[in-house]
Design a protein around this nucleic acid. Structure first.
Lengths: 219, 219
DNA sequence: CGCAAACTATCTCTTTTGGGGTAATTGCTA
DNA sequence: TAGCAATTACCCCAAAAGAGATAGTTTGCG
């Protein structure tokens, strides 16, 4: 290590948490906080200007969120180590953070001493992950990733139509009336669509579809 | 005011945030933090034991959440002023907090100076609400109540639990295995929960629940 | 033209679901 | 103590769903 302290930038829209974090970091004499930002836009500018050794980035921020900020920083050519700090251990967030170039993912409810250790390790170039996170990441990587959208494509128009009605909670009989076909025919379509999607019941199909709709709505 | 400093107890499962908050409070010489808890159960014991002037209570905690903790404290006869501190400005939370006897509702992303002012005002016996919150509260009160959340509240714990499993697509048999009860019993609970929610099938229930979860997740 | 895929429909059979009831146990409350 | 709500479990029965097979009609493509 060098003899001058490592530079750290904090990005979090909770002043209180910044304060706590800064105080924590001040306990280590080879670390220094050179900047604080309360939002992503600010962080982008300061990151380029100051080129800190480490950026600690909150995931859940108003306006531009942590992932978006991270993405833009990397696009902009920021080479600082970047560690996400967050309350969320949601699968997608972890995966998104790592795939977009985060060097770590720590949870806010960690023990402060441990957190400080991890920060030091991050500056030393190591990937730091909360324990709870490593599992999530491992299982996420085991799955190739989003095969979901493609699955919908394997369905015929009629099957997709019927799946959407199932996702509204409708029974075969109601669907039959709605589409003006026999309920026996609906059963055939349901049978096929379940097989194609690898699901075991219309309830699974409904849940899957609703989540699917929500996912695509976000983008 | 008296000449001895007012006593404050902090309840939050993020050590970091407690640290920041404690430091902030230490800036005022007529305030003193006499206890810190990382969970609701601990808080219940210490609150009764120490009877602080003010309890600052995190809403989103592991295990017993803030509202539950608040409720039990009041049931237990704790007369301290209690202020909720949280990231969430979800309508239901605010209303729930106030109706269960909270004396204030502050957001974690407030300006620290302002936060400190509000803490002082709370100790002086005033109701303190973040600006963003007053609006929420006003509109929440204008409506008689939340039409959706109230329906979930009519369910018993077991029914809600089973509804959540249905919302994962599980069959009665699977749910029975999961909860280690007979599948006949699961059917009884399903029957009741459908009647209470005014739904006609588990598929409707699943769809309703998934949408419900998504709505509450956003806040 | 011939063929495959999609859509339709029907039949059979098993499993699941939902609605009705009764009843024992527990724990809390008036 | 009596009563009530919640949880558990069982009964019966009708409706719905799902899996299998078979088959007619239409449509588009090589």
């Amino acid at each position: 290590m060098s003899d001058s302290p490592a530079t750290i930038m904090l990005v979090d829209d909770h002043p209180l948490l910044r304060k706590g974090l800064k105080q924590l970091i001040s306990l280590a004499d080879n670390l220094t906080v050179i900047a604080e930002c309360s939002n992503g836009a600010d962080a982008l500018i300061k990151a380029e200007e100051l080129d800190p050794d480490l950026i600690i980035l909150d995931l859940n921020m108003q306006g531009m969120d942590g992932i978006e900020t991270l993405k833009r920083m990397r696009d902009q050519g920021v080479t600082s180590r970047i560690v996400m700090l967050t309350v969320s251990d949601a699968d997608e967030d972890v995966v998104a953070a790592i795939t977009h170039g985060a060097d770590g993912y720590l949870l806010k409810d960690m023990d402060p001493e441990l957190l400080l250790e991890q920060i030091v390790r991050a500056i030393e170039g190591k990937m730091v992950l909360s324990e709870a996170i490593t599992e999530v990441l491992a299982t996420a990587l085991r799955r190739p990733s989003a095969p979901t959208a493609s699955k919908l494509d394997t369905l015929t128009n009629r099957e997709r139509e019927i799946l959407e009605l199932i996702a509204k909670g409708m029974s075969n009989k109601l669907i039959a009336r709605e589409l003006d076909i026999s309920d026996g025919t609906v059963k055939v379509h349901v049978k096929h669509l379940l097989k194609k999607l690898g699901l075991r019941s219309r309830v699974e199909a409904a849940v899957w579809m609703v989540n699917q709709e929500q996912l695509t709505d976000k983008n």
